[in-house]
Design a protein around this nucleic acid. Structure first.
Lengths: 167, 167
DNA sequence: ATAAACTTTCAATTATTTTTGAAAGTTTAA
DNA sequence: TTAAACTTTCAAAAATAATTGAAAGTTTAT
């Protein structure tokens, strides 16, 4: 396989993976492109490489910057903007998990708490509902905390040790 | 908040959460409904409760069964089929993570391996590509293994201990 | 073997999401 | 201040995904 083919394959794959995980395809493709690029890339080049419109590129770059995983970069003597991706993978994972927690998990937890604390009358149905949603609340909270701590986990010796043990 | 409202809110919330995580909305709603139901539910009732068509119900139930998180149940003297959800949350999480690994992560890993092992000529660009995709391969592999082991993790004393320490 | 009771399939329709592209906005240089 | 070089916005169009419903398929009872 030659470089160009490999590059394309990678961008496509990362794009598909992204869309399965709640990030849209183009956004993930732009990210892929930036990840494997050894220098900052202009919007023009992104449009060209992925064959997408200016508006599309602009919106998705903005999206990636909102996620905190792509940065603008300015080059001396150049008017236009260049973009780079976060390339440290631990940092990338940490940012993604923080953001998803904030956007998706925290709001869901709030509602789980609400619905799990209704006054359960005496019907078995209602009791089961409260029981199950309470368990779910605890579980999601636990999972969210785990993700939260995963970062530190990757950076300290205990984490490293436990990871080794888990392999 | 009364029961009916809470129930509805839960189903909607779980549905939205599902669609953010790659499972379609109706599928997640059916799952939600079954989760909080203290007895097996017929297709008829699911259609009625969620206001969806027979075909939709049928296809999404099949999907949930493919994921291994919903089961058919037969009642003595009843011709029609009833459905129940996996209610043990650790088991549910384990099944979901196994299935996602199989469907999404493993295929992506395969491609990452392919593209990261091309013959990198001497250009800095190609070197960077190989370097970055190799790192990505290692990272995704590690993450996948962690998910894989998370289950056992939840079931043994060391896991329980570490989880406590992480809180 | 037939019919009733039920489920599955899938082409057509509908809903949702993404993309485009041109107009409006912004920044910089002169 | 003006104009060139660039980016952002957003309504309309296109692409994609989900849903419907009726016909085909199954299973069970008689």
């Amino acid at each position: 396989m030659e470089f160009k083919e490999a590059k394309n394959k990678f961008v496509q794959t990362w794009g598909a993976l992204g869309s399965q995980w709640g990030i849209n395809k183009t956004m993930a493709q732009i990210h892929a492109l930036l990840m494997i690029s050894n220098e900052a890339v202009s919007m023009e080049d992104i449009m060209e490489e992925l064959q997408i419109s200016r508006g599309n590129a602009s919106m998705n770059l903005r999206g990636l910057m909102d996620w905190g995983i792509v940065y603008k970069e300015f080059k001396a003597g150049e008017r236009r903007e260049f973009f780079t991706a976060e390339k440290d993978l631990d940092e990338l994972a940490a940012k993604i998990s923080r953001e998803r927690s904030k956007r998706e998990i925290k709001p869901a937890l709030k509602i789980l708490k609400e619905v799990s604390t209704i006054e359960a009358k005496d019907s078995a149905e209602e009791k089961h509902f409260v029981d199950q949603t309470s368990k779910l609340y605890d579980f999601v909270l636990k999972a969210d905390n785990m993700l939260d701590k995963m970062t530190e986990f990757n950076e300290n010796w205990l984490g490293k040790l436990v990871i080794k043990m888990m392999k």
